[in-house]
Amino acid sequence: MINVEAVYWFIGILFIAWAALIMRDPNHPRRWGSSAFWGLLGLCFFYGTWVQAGTAPGWILGIAVLVLVALAASGQLADGRAKTSTGEQREAFAARFGNKLFIPALTLPVVTVILVLLAPVLNIGKTPILDPKNTTLVALAIGAIVAAVVALLILRPKHPLTPVFESRRILESIGWAALLPQMLSTLGILFTKAGVGTAVSTLATGVMPKGSLLAAVIVYCVGMFVFTVLMGNGFAAFPIMTAAIGWPVLVQQFHGNPPIVFAIGMLAGFCGTLCTPMAANFNLVPSALLEMKNKYGVIGAQLGTAFPLLVVNTALMYFLAF
């Protein structure tokens, strides 16, 4: 059986390979700090297997995570700007391959979906081939590998490791932000352990009429919107509002369908992202890039979509999930 831990080990191997490439790059501005960061992150993906299984102490991984944050915060990380094809070369390649370039990209979702659909019948004897608890993740990793192989076959680069070299370039351009979603997820789990959700729940139930499903759906969606506006991203808002309303009220009390409630809840948060200067990358950076006079102009153009869409999300949740 291909376990989800195998997927995490694959990711760990990728991080360590990228760290090795950086270590071998003498022109890298932060050669040692950067390779230490990505290498340690890779090791955390291996060690996490035993933490998850409960056979290794979690505090060691906790220290490693704090070291990662310290490396990133103290400026030990830099973009090595790995060598890649030039603009002219890319134009020439694009002219040669045309829309064939999209084939590997489409391979990924197609393979993933096919594997997920076939998973129930893919068995060796009685053992399923794909981890039945994490089918999508395993299918996705296989899809990613198949897509890279398809790309190699269609594009025939000079070096078979081109996908690894090129992904290092993208990873370094993302930098420490690559770790942020996982840290926000960790924060969400911590918040819930410490009772943040319960505290917000107490506040919310104070204003919410008891026993009204519609009121609960509105509080959840609008709460996601407001917390996202305040915190600049839906990732931080989701655990708070879900622990406060989404789980105890919408799922447990009103028996809402969990995937629908949570998926649409997150998207209600995204409406908030359209409205907030806290999401600087999306809303303030472009107005600077476009040399706009009003730096809130982008937000202004998005409000007219964000509010109706929030209403639509609330209605979709109310009608689809219950």
Partner: peptide, 23 residues
């Protein structure tokens, strides 16, 4: 922090997609 990180590893699975996008 450690156990939160370990159980959140799936969030970083997007990096598995980088090789194909890179090439």
């Amino acid at each position: 922090f450690g156990s939160g990180f370990a159980s959140s590893r799936s969030v970083t699975i997007f990096v598995a997609v980088l090789p194909v996008v890179g090439i």
